[in-house]
Design a protein around this nucleic acid. Structure first.
Lengths: 200, 200, 200, 200
DNA sequence: AATGAATGAGACTTCATTCAT
DNA sequence: CATGAATGAAGTCTCATTCAT
């Protein structure tokens, strides 16, 4: 294990904190260094530029999230079961990693150089995974025939925006309540099913 | 009529363009002025600061969107009909005003001074409107009993993220297709209803 | 008389006001125009540049002061009488025209282009006048033989600094008291004369 | 010892130079930095704003001058002796520190924020010291009974304006000559005493 | 390796001046 | 004439990055 006092990790953590609250551009390297308890020069022994930290944060965050989700659903059978798990775990993950969620939402678009490739990454990689699960479910008859890319994107948007707006989730009770609502909405829709029997 | 050549409008339009593609902080007043075909100094005769333009853009945009949506659903009867219209029109609106959508998504969070109050605005104002429609539908038995705030937020997230990700929507055919998918998803859910006996 | 509504005079008066309180560089043409109740453009129909107003202010002020003083002492006979009048009237004049006094003190040095020539003007013109009076007094035996340029400069410095520091001179009583003090000081010095024998 | 190459001192010295010749407002930070042989950014690592340098210059200058003068007269006995020393040393000091003298004269008035408090400083602190010496002299009968505040201010004005106007003092001979003139003027006045006896 | 002083490119903003109305 | 909208040069200040210690 790289025993450099964990400076690199401290810098990444500090950057995530301030980026997610102040935004990338409003954050100075000085602030990151101070919060990481390292000298400003030290910052540059670990990362070539400020933007590079953002890249790493997004890259690592997305990768980690992907692996986390992957692990959660690998053993599950059936698309419905998988999607239920995805919805639950993604909500949980974003709730537990709100800063990352904010970072993705705010910084993933509108960056020129390299980071714009992450708009690709998130689509190509994460959403594509959702899409595959959905496609499989459709093929196997568990799910209705809908445009899988749109559904995957909608699922992601639903969960991330809810996780973002719900900052004041202090009790896990509330999180469970929200999760149940989203599950019902996503799988069964909001419409009251026609209770057929009254029509006899 | 204020016949100043529409300079103020030109500046706002130019700012929306560049803010939405490059981000607020990566945009210089110079760029805005050039794109608006005015001198840099002129910018400051219309707006006191660069941030003030962002405020106006968000404020006006949100207000306009609210009124637009309001107008579209006022005459409709029934919560389902209203929500169908909301979904359709919001998707259309965000598609027609992608820059505004991007701006809201990116800049509405993480601004300190005044603009943070817009995080309030969008929640309190727009989402609250959705919430009320949903609540009414629940009370009147058209919709299932779900947490209305969560559903409202989810609907907003679904539509805005889909509108954002789907940049390459050139044909309106595609937009209609996407809309139909979201309608189905939102109202009926993704699960294949159990056709219990017809399989014999 | 140039009946342009006295705009030119209003501009000069306004400029004197703000220059003397805020300094030349901290004053905007806008402020001058507003205080003069004219449009900003009008300013430039009367004066080619902002600095030109300063020049005129100093030029006119110095000229006017010179003529005023000239008039006060022309008919007086004897250098002592003339210097007494000069001291009294200059104190009075600076008290009545504090803004001008402040302007001279602050802006007469350290201007490049033309206005630096006014450092010359004030020396060559005004102080030289004092010097001549003093020289004459020395020649005629009324005054002691001292370096007249230094004495003239000292007199000017004495009066102007006292007038400047004594902003709170609201009562003319106080002004008379101060004048008397300066008269005594300048003409008789501060030393208690040795009353060597009269005490017998 | 703070061996930073004396950058801070170099900046202060450079600023004094240019402020005193061009005036505070006509001086750019760029000019100061260039003359101090440091980068423009370095200026801001030592001082938060351009005005802050002016404050420091005036504050330090006034303090130093006060201590210098204090040291020169502490051991002297008698008010006349002290005032003679003050006049001599102040003239010398201003002659040796003409830039500071110009700065005080030009910038001490007409600054709003903090620096205006220096108008207080110089009056309250320095002139008050003069005043006390004079008061003592009056009480002890060495000096004539005159308004001490006015006399103190007049002395200061006399010396500073003479020091300021006499830029071309290259030879120390001239300075001594000027000093003698001021001493005579201040202590004995300009009037030729009536030599009564010759009239016999 | 770690640091922070030094730096200059570049951003925002002001304001003297012009000019079409 | 009078006006104020328009303008860009220029100034203050920030901050990512470098580099000597």
């Amino acid at each position: 294990m790289s025993d450099d006092g964990g400076k690199r990790e401290r810098i990444l953590a500090a950057a995530l904190d301030v980026f997610s609250t102040q935004g990338f551009s409003n954050t100075t390297v000085q602030e990151i260094a101070e919060r990481a308890k390292v000298g400003k020069g030290t910052f540059y022994t670990y990362f070539p530029t400020k933007e590079d930290v953002l890249i790493h944060l997004l890259d690592d965050g997305l990768t980690h999230m992907g692996q986390y989700m992957e692990g959660k659903i690998r053993t599950l059978k059936g698309s419905v079961a998988k999607l239920r798990a995805i919805l639950r775990e993604q909500l949980q993950y974003f709730h537990d990693h709100q800063p990352l969620c904010r970072l993705i939402t705010r910084e993933v678009w509108g960056h020129h150089d390299q980071s714009s490739s992450f708009a690709q990454r998130i689509r190509s990689s994460y959403i594509k995974m959702l899409q595959e699960v959905i496609d499989k479910g459709i093929r196997e008859g568990e799910l209705r025939t809908l445009d899988s890319e749109t559904v995957a994107t909608a699922l992601y948007g639903m969960v991330s925006v809810v996780a973002l707006y719900t900052t004041d989730l202090s009790s896990d009770k509330a999180l469970e309540h929200i999760e149940m609502t989203l599950q019902e909405l996503f799988f069964s829709g909001i419409t009251q099913p026609h209770t057929l029997m009254g029509e006899a």
